[in-house]
Amino acid sequence: MLITLFNAQRASVISRAALMSLALLLLAGCGTMGNANNTYAEPEPDLSELVHAAAEQMIASNPELTRYSPMIAATFVSIDNLSQSSTLGRISSEIMASALSRQGMEVREVKMRDSMFIEESVGELILSRQVQRLSAQHNARSILMGTYAQGQDFVYVSARVVRAGDAMVLGSADFRLPLNNNTRSLLEGQGGW
């Protein structure tokens, strides 16, 4: 009887140890579940992060760029139709102007003045024939311009700061934005995607 009691206690200890080992294995497996390489996916960069990095790149490639202040900002336009923009084009221009301002560029706000025609659905489009007239009107030495193109998985954005007097490119930066639901929503205003 004593041997039976000893064997029962020993079996109980072994069962508890086996259960504990099994529980630890299950917990360890939960930590890597769905992630075979045990690495975590980085979140996609958002528009603001990409634009601020592009502005830093633009100033780094030409530190003298801030000498061409004040600057006015034109709405970024679709590369497929330079007279068409979208919410993406308007907000990209706004964020880039803000980012360049943080880098030391003086930015003149033109939406506050009546002298520049602003079409509600397009924004402050500046075509090459208007550059000199508008820069003189706003006493600007440079103009921020940009284009974007939609691909299958990304939207490609190209931004430039051009000298107002002769449209010479003073600085440029490019980036690509993942084409996710947020980006598609920003593009909807351009009349299709």
Rank of each mutant, 00 (worst) to 15 (best):
A164T: 08
A99R: 02
E124N: 12
Q152Y: 00
Q137S: 15
L144S: 02
E106L: 11
E109T: 05
G123E: 01
M145Q: 08
V155Q: 04
T87K: 10
F117Y: 03
R113E: 10
V155C: 01
A140L: 09
R129G: 13
V131M: 09
E124H: 10
R133Q: 15
S121C: 02
S135W: 06
A159I: 06
L88G: 04
M96W: 02
E120I: 02
T147F: 01
A136S: 14
T147W: 08
I126D: 04
E120S: 07
S121W: 07
Y156I: 07
R108I: 08
Q152P: 03
T147R: 03
R129I: 05
V161Q: 02
V122T: 05
I91E: 00
R160A: 15
L127D: 07
F154Q: 13
S93T: 03
S98R: 14
N139F: 08
M96G: 00
S86N: 05
S93Q: 00
Q132I: 05
Q150T: 15
R141Y: 06
G146E: 01
K111Q: 14
A164L: 12
A136N: 15
M116V: 10
M105K: 03
Q130W: 03
M116H: 12
G146S: 08
G89D: 03
G104M: 04
M105W: 08
R141T: 07
L100S: 02
I126Q: 05
G146K: 03
A149I: 09
I95R: 00
R113Q: 14
E124F: 11
R163Q: 11
G104Q: 09
L125R: 15
R163P: 04
T87P: 04
R113F: 05
H138P: 12
V131D: 11
I118M: 10
I118W: 07
S115A: 12
E94K: 04
L125M: 12
D153H: 13
M116T: 15
S92R: 06
Q150V: 14
S86Y: 08
Q130I: 01
R102H: 12
A149L: 12
L127I: 05
R163H: 06
G165L: 07
D153N: 15
R113K: 08
S135I: 02
V107F: 10
I118F: 09
K111C: 13
K111P: 10
A136W: 07
Y148W: 11
Q137E: 15
